[in-house]
Write a protein that binds this DNA or RNA. Structure first.
Lengths: 205, 205
DNA sequence: ATGTATACGTACCGATCGGTAACATTGTCA
DNA sequence: TGACAATGTTACCGATCGGTACGTATACAT
């Protein structure tokens, strides 16, 4: 699933020099395992086994498991905004349609067996400590999501744009969680419809 | 925080005989630690230390750590519906006001430092395996929440009651998650207002 | 070919994980 | 006082945790 763009930026947070090839295999394996089963649930031994490398290779590319988790989330962040921007680009100049497209996509994604929700959200639940490297990345991602949704609510001409933006964020997070809680046929399938109702009720008359 | 009502039901799932006193101390300690820091993050040694008991006592009252986690969630479940029913009882015959009262309470609860969201939701994130004892309790709680919200949407006279009920659930889950993600001043403070907007837009005209 | 640097593997570390065996001590009620 | 159940004490188990010391292989330049 992970696409290896700017991998050196992801792996060590911008202060990179030359990323070894093993690092990508490790990050790919960690991405899949962390996302599907949780960060705390996965040990470094399982990661290196899946990646087909050895443990010292992991610790040459990443300072610690916690930092590897942060790197996983930086990769996740890249792909997240890619999907977001696709929905935006598909509906130029129409913020309501942009939101609807993004939410429709989320609603569809939740309707698969063993859907695991949002990696960012899950990581924040796993690590309540705000100083944990993984949580720092997660919180930044969510702050940015809030900022964008509020800006789009402004562009829609909402009566109370901050409230609408936040309402959309609540629906989105609710879809991530209920998607993994209820499985097929759960409440998350209605996220786009509910968002549209909320938008309709929030526009200036 | 845990009130020890029907503790024998909570501890071993109904098939109880006589609950020893150490079991309550253990469950209380586990409740606080599991909720605040996560189930996977807490070891049994920390629980017995906090409870002022020893490890064999834990394993005389609970078959395993996983079952202790399930007992914690059964206690959580009891208190959850207590709070829910309070909001219902405070507004008899007025489902819209009942929902608003429940959501207002959730919105307030999220606006404290180090808010940790819903123990049920968090447990489901920590344990993606549907057969895990803790997750079984969590999923049952959420199914019941969905059932009640949909029933209340019917009572409100919504055009599409299932969609409104699910929309309210999405907002609630979003509040639990964004409450712990954003801290004070986060999107969760607007959950009641957004719910009311959504209800307004969903009623038959 | 030989030096030099970089990447990789074998084997290991102490700590902690969930869980238990065996026995001593306590409290309670008859 | 006797008896029984509940709890405490101590020591331990194998497995796994995150992390590392140290030797080896490979690449490339000279």
């Amino acid at each position: 699933m992970p696409t290896d763009k700017n991998i050196e930026l992801i792996i060590n947070d911008g202060h990179a020099s030359a990323p070894p090839k093993a690092a990508k295999k490790i990050l790919d394996a960690a991405y899949d395992l962390f996302y599907r089963r949780g960060i705390r649930a996965i040990g470094v031994d399982e990661i290196v086994k899946r990646a087909g490398v050895t443990k010292p290779s992991l610790y040459r590319s990443f300072p610690s498991k916690d930092e590897l988790a942060a790197s996983y989330l930086r990769q996740y962040d890249l792909e997240y905004w890619e999907r977001f921007d696709e929905a935006i680009a598909a509906n130029p100049g129409d913020p309501r349609a942009q939101v609807k497209a993004f939410l429709t996509r989320i609603g569809k994604r939740t309707q698969v067996a063993d859907y695991r929700g949002c990696g960012m959200t899950n990581a924040a639940v796993e690590y309540p400590d705000h100083s944990h490297p993984a949580r720092v990345v997660s919180e930044a991602n969510k702050q940015e999501l809030r900022r964008r949704l509020r800006a789009m609510a402004v562009a829609m001409g909402a009566q109370d744009a901050d409230t609408l933006g936040d309402g959309l964020l609540l629906l989105i997070e609710g879809a991530y969680i209920s998607g993994q809680l209820f499985g097929l046929g759960g409440p998350a399938q209605s996220v786009a419809r509910n968002a549209d109702l909320l938008i309709e009720a929030s526009l200036k008359k």
